[in-house]
Design a binder for these strands. Structure first.
Length: 197
DNA sequence: CATATGATTATG
DNA sequence: ATAATCATATGT
């Protein structure tokens, strides 16, 4: 069965539209060690120049953020706290630096590989399975995402997103974004989207 | 060149 | 509650 990619125009919308739409989609990473994938369960919208919580606030363009200024449907990856990577999807249009941070996944394929990569210590009970990828740093570790995948085309064949499973609107809830207190009013906005099946 | 810090996680 | 840990951003 062929894994169908989400079309490029899926990403050519504002982060606020793409973020909730990304829930239930399947994020897949094909590596030499094997294939790992998971359903997206949590995402946050970052709206660019006007959004005080965004890396591109004020239109700030640096070596780190340049991918956000590029065409949509590509990966924006950065290192945080000196030890964890965060995976984002670039959205909107070229020159419009918006992105969606993928905060959590529900593991699907390659769970064994995820366990190895994360050096998971606890017992593998179905109940604790979600702990494998329930944070931005965790899911990057589990999927083997690092700087190497910076700028990757998400309609390509290494790191890509497929339609996954549909999510009913009533199963989506919104919350304020995490750890952006410094952003004043912008921190309060319900731009975090969580899928609760 | 020097310094401060973060869209986090694991552990006590 | 707090340490871990470093690329990036920013200032001098």
């Amino acid at each position: 069965m062929l894994s169908q990619r989400l079309p490029p125009d899926f990403y050519a919308r504002s982060a606020l539209e793409v973020a909730p739409d990304l829930l239930g989609k399947l994020l897949v990473h094909v590596t030499v060690e094997g294939i790992v994938s998971g359903y997206i369960t949590e995402a946050e919208a970052y709206m660019g120049p006007e959004d005080k919580a965004a890396h591109t606030y004020g239109g700030k363009k640096t070596k780190r953020t340049q991918a956000m200024f590029g065409p949509p449907g590509h990966a924006y990856i950065y290192l945080i706290y000196g030890m964890y990577y965060c995976f984002n999807v670039v959205v909107a249009t070229e020159g419009q630096p918006q992105a969606v941070l993928v905060r959590a996944l529900e593991p699907k394929d390659g769970i064994n590989l995820m366990l190895t990569r994360r050096r998971f210590k606890q017992d593998l009970t179905p109940k604790k399975l979600y702990q494998l990828t329930n944070g931005p740093g965790k899911l990057c570790q589990a999927l083997g995402i690092s700087k190497e995948q910076y700028g990757y085309d998400l309609t390509g064949n290494k790191l890509f997103i497929t339609p996954g499973i549909p999510v009913a609107p009533e199963n989506i809830c919104t919350k304020p974004r995490v750890n952006v207190d410094y952003a004043g009013e912008w921190a309060q906005l319900p731009w975090r989207f969580v899928w609760k099946p």
